[in-house]
């Protein structure tokens, strides 16, 4: 039994219970309010994620980071293939996000074709990729299929998600923005595709790929799971690495590993990362990672042509 001084332990427990009761009520009330406004957004990145997870029924789905969002032109893909196309990529997101969205999508319907945009260094060891799982937290409660991905964020994630507010951590301003006209004007996309107008001004940077030798086995396993899920659902999967406007040294270990795995599963890996047609033309790039509108047109047509020859 805890020895007490002037104030009884019982008094302490009563006060503590009162504090928790107030917190509990506030958590439920504010959490519900945030949830309501989060899913009412009509524009912005979170809206596009919600659309990808809960609404899209496009025949062709494109997954990847900003290099998917800015480079795969959905209009060209739709016009050339006669199939509907949606770009489900999201800026800065690694394989964890794409796998979670895929799991949620295949629970509703089966797309015909999936293009996964792969980047150099995608398998490298960094904690940043795990932090980025945060964007999936609002979907945790209603989408049990993504639980395995969300819990990769940390050992206490399930505990944190007992709170109704925590899934919307740091989302207050994006939610306000996503429910406003300002956001509708700012985030205009063509089925998830966001073109970049500017032209690369240099200077050409040198990248030494040989330094990043340590690969993250969890990321590799999730990449494999992505491929296996597509095979299980009989979806035609193509993995594409768009071009870079850089001066590379050595081999990128992530690309090499991803290619080898794709080969094991008999999946086509289209590697444009050092395609001289693009890398010799800086005017096709917006920056060293992203093609601009001119580059996108050539690139999207080139990918479609290759896909047609492979089918």
């Amino acid at each position: 039994m805890i020895k007490t001084g002037n104030h009884s332990f019982k008094n302490f427990l009563l006060k503590l219970a009162a504090c928790f009761a107030l917190l509990f009520i506030l958590d439920i009330g504010i959490g519900k309010l945030l949830k309501n406004f989060y899913f009412r957004q009509q524009s912005g990145y979170d809206f596009l994620t919600t659309y990808s997870i809960e609404k899209t029924k496009a025949d062709i789905l494109i997954f990847g980071s900003s290099r998917a969002v800015n480079i795969f032109n959905t209009i060209i893909f739709s016009e050339r293939t006669g199939l509907s196309c949606f770009n489900a990529g999201r800026y800065g997101e690694p394989i964890f996000y794409h796998y979670a969205v895929l799991k949620a999508v295949v629970k509703r319907y089966t797309p015909k074709i999936i293009l996964l945009s792969f980047d150099a260094g995608n398998f490298s060891n960094n904690t940043d990729a795990y932090d980025r799982i945060t964007v999936l937290l609002p979907y945790y409660k209603n989408h049990p299929e993504i639980h395995s991905v969300v819990t990769l964020k940390g050992p206490y994630e399930k505990l944190k998600l007992l709170s109704n507010i925590y899934p919307y951590n740091s989302l207050l301003l994006p939610i306000i923005s996503g429910n406003s006209n300002y956001s509708k004007k700012k985030y205009i996309t063509d089925n998830g595709f966001i073109p970049i107008e500017k032209t690369f001004e240099g200077p050409l940077q040198t990248f030494d790929y040989s330094k990043e030798k340590d690969l993250d086995s969890i990321k590799i396993n999730v990449y494999k799971s992505f491929i296996e899920e597509c095979i299980r659902q009989h979806i035609q999967l193509y993995i594409v690495c768009p071009p870079y406007m850089i001066n590379p040294i050595g081999t990128d270990h992530s690309i090499a590993e991803a290619k080898e795995i794709a080969q094991q599963y008999n999946i086509k890996f289209l590697d444009y990362s050092r395609d001289t047609f693009f890398t010799s033309k800086p005017q096709l790039f917006a920056d060293f990672r992203h093609l601009n509108v001119n580059g996108v047109e050539l690139f999207s047509n080139s990918v479609i042509k290759k896909l047609e020859s492979l089918r």
Binding site: T4, G5, H7, F12
Partner: peptide, 8 residues
């Protein structure tokens, strides 16, 4: 000794 006020 345990003091409720101090703990808070």
């Amino acid at each position: 000794t345990f003091d409720s006020d101090r703990v808070f």
